[in-house]
């Protein structure tokens, strides 16, 4: 799935289901705008919580000594901010899970098969 298919889904839903007339271009622009606002919020260091989807937070990483994996040379990894995303438990529970194998041990111990 790409931003184009998201824009397409938005276009269909707004026009066909919600009776809001927006063009294909406007849908694409709207998707872009929503994503931009989320990015700007994270840029300010603020978290973004979308119920039923997940939470985006920013975290500081301190400088550390690393190595260039290709050359083995020591290098400084600069301090930086990173994004952490925690999927909502609701979403995590409805995600496609690998089929439980019949030879899985302790199948059905209550904590075993999550879905």
């Amino acid at each position: 799935m790409t931003r184009a298919s998201i824009a397409n889904a938005l276009f269909k839903e707004m026009n066909e289901e919600r009776g809001v007339a927006i063009s294909v271009g406007e849908s694409a622009e709207l998707v872009e705008g929503i994503l931009r606002i989320i990015k700007e919020t994270l840029q300010k260091g603020e978290e973004v919580k979308i119920p039923g989807f997940g939470t985006f937070t920013t975290h500081r990483k301190l400088a550390r000594k690393g190595r260039n994996p290709k050359t083995g040379e020591a290098a400084e990894v600069a301090p930086r901010l990173v994004i952490r995303f925690q999927a909502s438990q609701l979403l995590q529970n409805s995600i496609l899970q690998p089929a439980p194998l019949s030879h899985d041990r302790h199948n059905g111990n209550g904590r075993g098969t999550s879905l």
């Binding site: 930086r80 994004i83 995303f85 995600i95």
Partner: peptide
């Protein structure tokens, strides 16, 4: 306790988002 294999959702920030930060 046996913990079965599972799929988890992960997110990796894109270039623009990383640069903005």
């Amino acid at each position: 306790v046996y913990v079965p294999p599972k799929n988890v959702l992960s997110f990796k920030a894109g270039k623009d988002l990383k640069e903005r930060l």
